[in-house]
Computed example of a mutant assay.
Amino acid sequence: MDELLKDLEELTLEIAEKLQELEFEDLLEFVDQREELLTQLREADNGQQPLAGYQDRIRRLLSHDDAILARMLELKNEASAGLAKIEQGKRQKNRYESAYAADSYFFDQRK
């Protein structure tokens, strides 16, 4: 269990140190690795070793969660803004194209 907590601490600290440089894929990989380690911790605990002795280490790990979640939210907002911009471009293109019919004819009348 100590080894699993150590791995989780190393992973979390590594992510926390370079958090502003990370992209979505990096954070996705972190979440997957973290979930795997947490699953292993739950299996290792199995009700035999209480986590009470590890509370300080767990609190330190959880203290990084707010910053990590803030970065995830920042990346989500950037992606949402990018998608909104693409959608707006599509709508403008559709409005422009629908304003002109390709099968129309122009007749010049002389007076």
Rank of each mutant, 00 (worst) to 15 (best):
E36N: 14
R34A: 02
E14P: 07
F107W: 12
S63D: 08
A101H: 11
F24S: 07
D7F: 00
D66H: 01
L69P: 00
S80V: 04
E25Y: 03
K111D: 13
R42M: 08
K85M: 11
G53A: 10
Q33Y: 05
D103V: 11
Y105P: 02
A52N: 13
D56H: 02
E21C: 04
G89S: 13
D108A: 06
H64P: 05
E35T: 11
E14C: 08
K111A: 03
R34Q: 02
L27N: 05
E29K: 01
Q109W: 12
P50C: 10
Q20D: 00
R110Q: 14
R95M: 06
L8K: 05
L62K: 01
Y96D: 14
L41N: 07
N77T: 03
M1K: 12
S104C: 04
A101E: 00
Y54S: 11
K90V: 14
R91G: 00
I86V: 15
Q88P: 09
Y96K: 13
F106D: 09
L61N: 05
L22W: 05
F30H: 04
L4H: 05
S98Q: 01
F106Y: 12
L11V: 06
E36K: 08
E9P: 04
T39P: 02
Y100K: 07
D103Q: 11
D32H: 12
L19H: 10
K90S: 07
Y96F: 15
E97Y: 13
E78N: 12
Q88E: 15
A70P: 10
K76G: 08
R110D: 04
E78L: 05
T39C: 00
E25A: 05
N77K: 03
Q55R: 04
I68C: 09
Y105H: 02
D45R: 01
E43H: 04
L11C: 03
P50A: 06
F106W: 11
S80L: 00
E21H: 09
L38F: 09
N77C: 05
N94R: 15
Y105L: 09
A79F: 06
D65V: 04
A102S: 15
Q109D: 15
A81N: 08
E29F: 09
E97S: 10
L27R: 02
Q109F: 14
Q40M: 01
